[in-house]
Design a protein around this nucleic acid. Structure first.
Length: 699
DNA sequence: AGCACGCCGACT
DNA sequence: GTCGGCGTGCTC
């Protein structure tokens, strides 16, 4: 007997394929993984709950349906909660159901047939019975050596009063969302550990999200150490396909107790989910920028409610969205007021760069005061960290004669001068050329770098501090596998006196011997057009400051230096007092008066085309058609504008902002609008692609 | 998005 | 004479 199956197949949202397609087969429970014929090919899909009959649309007769080609019956079906999370993501971010479902499952899953999968699963189940498995793939396993299952408690340090209160609140609150606000070093991780211990003790699984792959190893090590005998797996895109499948299966089969991962891990299948932790919840990395542009933090909150699991959002500088929700009482705020061990936050010093004497019109990157301070730390045998969010030697090369600048021929951006290999590189499209011997425009031999990046800063430090051991950490020096860990190890081992780097070094790393952190040129973000720029700058500088004085014995002497031309700027004033609350209050007031999130809800329609005209024409047509809908009255559609870098790799980009006071109105408009946009695409030949970004980070 | 079919230019 | 350019159309 054949049954009708509603299947979410992997196909983009065009022409109605984004929803559910009917097949014959089964009977199969919803959540089963299948392969289904689609045209002349075969695509993976997930059996979905049968939708209610649509009276407006007659269903296809059975004769018109094709049977599913394969069933991966050895895989336990994906749960109703997982399907609900995927369905919500699909609807909210306007992407096909099957597209979302398959994009968050391990890619390896589509390659295996049922027999091979059954063998893998049997193997995992068997090794789980025996205890630890010796083969590679997770840090838990390396930390698991020889340890039998021991109780998770017993290794707990004594908690501060704040920590204890936080742990109590989380373990008592069944399905609330908590905002754990605590400066660097205030012991947020210990709260995560204790909350997770409580979850595990109840026989449930804990999911821990971190913003970057770089940060997984150290948090993984702490969890692995605390939870010996428990199985901890990581999920992120840095794993090999086989590791990712294995770890995903361990979570899905309920064999892993702890899952630690980046944003994609929010979709991990967890049959016994009991806690979600989102570390550094403000971090922009939680927003996916391709495909379904979801926010893993927002989805974590949704999932927590859905599965009645507490959600713990942690940050020293929470996103204004989360902060406002905490103020409204929708999230419960938990504060960790002090650094552990009574350590104080570094003293913040502002250097007024406008007071420096100008030497032949060129300002130096380093003020004499900062150089003196670095020299002092060097003499004391202490480490310093210099932070400059710009890699390369100089952001642009220019001709002193005719004014030529090293623009990228394919992008509306400058090519960056990299001195180490004497190249000009476009950081947007990757276009790289050797530095020309002479100006390509006038033949002048004197080409000069303008501004500075980490390479040049490293050079200047070496000149200013002869004998100092200088190391640089940025995307260029850490490209090779293991290079980052190697360099970090050198810093930890005390083999480095001054560390120079981009924001890579501002995040998370636990440097014990750094007593001075300096932001060399933070002003650039101060007047950026992006409305979130101040929030990001404040978070980054707070985070960078947190790298100093992590060892309590040195904390009192630790300093954060800021070189600025705007020493009276309120952002720096708040930073000086480490006063996030005041900063957040002033930012929220600005957002409210400007009609920006979290007081309004935004979406962007982006278009990419060969010409600006084609991209603009599509957006203008789209805006005109949106006027047909009643919701349009509640949604403000702004004129199309170019993004900050309008052309990338010879593709012109334009975007159009939608703003609504209500999330519902915005969603309703998008729902009506999407079919129109698909239709419109055909009429605009020059258009390469378009996408909707709900809750965009930058506009 | 794939992957077909389908009708016009330079090649073994 | 074919190989192949990508325009248009379909996929339960």
């Amino acid at each position: 007997m054949t049954h009708r199956l509603a299947v979410a197949v992997e196909a983009p949202q065009y022409s109605g394929l984004g929803g559910l397609l009917d097949y014959l087969g089964g009977p199969l429970p919803p959540g089963s993984l299948v392969r289904a014929p689609l045209g002349r090919r075969e695509v993976p899909g997930v059996v979905w709950d049968a939708p209610p009959a649509d009276p407006a649309q007659a269903p296809l007769p059975d004769e018109a349906l094709r049977p599913v080609a394969q069933v991966l019956s050895s895989l336990p079906p994906l749960s109703a909660a997982w399907r609900q999370l995927v369905a919500f993501t699909s609807a909210y971010y306007q992407r096909g159901l099957g597209e979302v479902a398959l994009s968050v499952l391990p890619p390896e899953l589509r390659k295996l047939d049922d027999e091979k999968l059954a063998r893998r699963i049997a193997k995992l189940r068997k090794s789980a019975e025996k205890g630890a498995t010796p083969d590679a793939g997770t840090a838990a396993e390396s930390a698991e050596t020889a340890k039998p299952a021991v109780p998770d408690a017993g290794l707990e340090p004594t908690l501060t009063e704040d920590q204890r209160a936080a742990v109590e609140a989380v373990t008592a609150g069944a399905d609330s969302t908590f905002l754990l606000h605590g400066v660097t070093g205030s012991g947020k991780t210990e709260v995560y550990l204790q909350a997770a211990a409580h979850t595990l003790a109840q026989g449930r699984q804990a999911l821990v999200l971190v913003p970057e792959i770089n940060l997984t190893p150290q948090l993984e090590a702490r969890f692995a150490e605390r939870f010996r005998g428990r199985r901890l797996v990581s999920l992120h895109s840095g794993l090999t396909p086989a590791q990712r499948l294995k770890n995903w299966l361990l979570a899905h089969l309920g064999l892993a107790d702890l899952v630690l991962g980046t944003r994609l891990a929010v979709f991990a299948s967890l049959p016994r989910l009991g806690l979600i932790v989102v570390d550094e919840e403000h971090d922009p990395s939680y927003k996916q920028q391709e495909g379904a542009r979801y926010s893993a933090r927002d989805l974590a909150v949704y999932r927590g409610r859905l599965e009645r699991a507490p959600v713990l959002l942690g940050s020293a500088t929470p996103s204004l969205e989360s902060w406002q929700r905490a103020q409204q009482g929708r999230y419960k705020r938990l504060d960790l007021a002090q650094r552990i061990g009574g350590g104080v936050l570094p003293e913040v010093r502002l250097v007024d760069m406008s007071l420096l004497p100008r030497t032949h019109g060129v300002t130096t990157a380093l003020s004499p005061q900062l150089v003196d301070a670095l020299r002092e730390r060097l003499a004391l045998g202490e480490q310093s960290l210099l932070f400059l969010n710009r890699r390369g030697y100089a952001p642009v090369l220019h001709c002193t004669e005719c004014g030529w600048k090293s623009g990228c021929p394919h992008c509306s951006a400058w090519r960056v001068f990299h001195r180490s290999d004497r190249t000009l590189r476009c950081h947007h499209c990757g276009f790289t050329e050797r530095v020309p011997r002479a100006c390509p425009q006038c033949g002048n031999l004197d080409l000069q770098p303008l501004g500075r990046g980490t390479e040049r800063l490293e050079e200047q430090i070496a000149e200013a501090l002869p004998g100092a051991r200088v190391a640089r950490i940025d995307a260029d020096t850490t490209r090779a596998a293991g290079a980052l860990q190697e360099r970090l190890a050198a810093v930890h081992a005390g083999e480095v006196d001054v560390l120079v780097g981009t924001q890579m070094i501002a995040k998370g790393h636990d440097f014990r011997r750094i007593t001075l952190v300096a932001a060399v040129n933070p002003d650039s973000a101060l007047f950026a057009s992006d409305f979130r720029a101040p929030e990001r700058l404040f978070a980054l500088l707070m985070q960078a400051a947190g790298r100093a004085g992590r060892d309590a014995s040195q904390a009192a002497r630790s300093q954060m230096w800021l070189q600025t031309w705007h020493p009276t700027h309120p952002l720096y004033a708040a930073l000086r007092r480490h006063d996030f609350e005041r900063f957040a209050a002033s930012q929220l007031a600005e957002r409210e008066s400007a009609g920006l999130p979290p007081y309004t809800h935004l979406a962007l329609l982006r278009a990419e085309a060969r010409t600006v005209e084609a991209a603009t024409a599509f957006l203008e047509d789209a805006a005109a058609r949106a006027g047909e809908f009643t919701e349009a009255a509640e949604v403000l559609i702004y004129p199309a504008v170019p993004p900050p870098v309008a052309r990338v790799a010879d593709v012109e980009r334009m975007q159009m902002l939608l703003e609504a006071a209500s999330r519902g109105a915005l969603q309703r408009l998008l729902w009506q609008w999407m079919p129109v946009l698909y239709e419109l695409r055909a009429a605009h030949k020059g258009l390469i692609r378009w996408a909707v970004d709900v809750d965009p980070l930058a506009i």
